[in-house]
Amino acid sequence: MTATRLTASPAAASPTISAHGRGRPCVITRRATFSASHLYRLPELDEAENARRFGRCSLAPGHGHNYELTVAMGGPLDGDGMVLNLSDVKHAIRREVSDPLDFRFLNDVWPEFDLSRPEGRLPTTEALLLAIRERLAPHLPLVALRLHEQTNLWADVLCGPTIDPMEAFLSIRTHFAAAHRLARPELSQSENEAIYGKCARPHGHGHNYLLDVTVRGPIDARTGMVCDLAELQQLVADLVVEPFDHTFLNKDVEHFAGCVPTAENIALHIADLLSAPIAATGARLHKVRLQESPNNAAEVFAETPQLEMLPAALEALAAV
């Protein structure tokens, strides 16, 4: 078979759309993995205080994770229809991140984590992601980065000249099981079924809810944390999981006696419950995401407007 090159006539050429999308903006992502260990222990604290602040993460000789890094990059397409050559992207991430970190003890790898220095900090998920950004930024047109330490714990950072270089997002995931019925008491059964369908049936139905809570703030110069992770997890457990788990929301949670417990309303209520307590930890509640089923989820942004934060970058990370 013989390939034929098609050339547009000058009259057919568009001033804004060229062959292969040249010049049009796009965000691309690349995933990388590495395995590493770390230890949360500050030399200026005694054994008891390290244990109180960092729990089992302070136990020597440390613990490890299989990390997953997502790199989002943006820019105009070139004449080959690419933002960047993916081979160049792969080699840059391997050279600057994967090879230096894979199967290493993070506390000893990079100077940011040398705790003998006054500016040294613990290699938390957030702090590690900031250090990765510093190494990749000279080589790739970064838009955002995400680092999963576990499936239920990850951090995000944005990239750009207007972004606070010490700010990060920290997300935790948990779950609870609950039943609900979608119906407004002032309406008849047939009227409720017209609005809510099968969800209005009198005896209700249940879900295994997945809850993601995302907080935002500057990382502490020494602990490397946006907030105390254990405290955040305990707040979510005490204020949401324990009161909601294995309940009939309409009957067992006072708020939903007069509020239809749709996924949207549940997410809004969770955001209202968490905003002030999280603020007391020094972070800010950014977002609550409630997954009701594999097909349905609701997201509530506690910060309005959404910080003018390049939403395409965050969406690119979330889609991976």
Rank of each mutant, 00 (worst) to 15 (best):
Q234S: 12
P218L: 03
C199A: 13
G79P: 04
S58Q: 11
I266L: 14
A8Q: 14
A302M: 05
C159A: 15
L59F: 12
L268D: 15
V288G: 01
I195D: 11
R95I: 10
A48K: 10
V109R: 00
R181P: 05
L106S: 02
G160W: 06
I219K: 06
I195F: 11
N295R: 05
L129Y: 05
H269E: 13
H286K: 02
A313L: 04
C26R: 14
V97E: 04
H91W: 07
L268H: 15
Q306P: 02
G21T: 06
T162H: 08
E191R: 13
A221G: 08
E126V: 03
A72N: 05
A92I: 07
E254L: 12
E292N: 07
P305L: 07
T214K: 04
L140S: 04
E315S: 12
R56P: 00
D238T: 03
H203R: 14
H175I: 02
H175R: 13
S87E: 12
L129M: 14
D156T: 08
G204N: 04
E126W: 06
L285T: 01
A3N: 08
P277G: 09
W154M: 00
M166E: 12
P243F: 06
I266P: 00
H20G: 09
A177T: 11
D228C: 00
H207G: 07
T4L: 13
P10V: 12
H180A: 14
E112V: 12
L136H: 07
G79I: 03
L210M: 07
L170D: 02
P202D: 13
N208R: 11
T125R: 01
R94A: 15
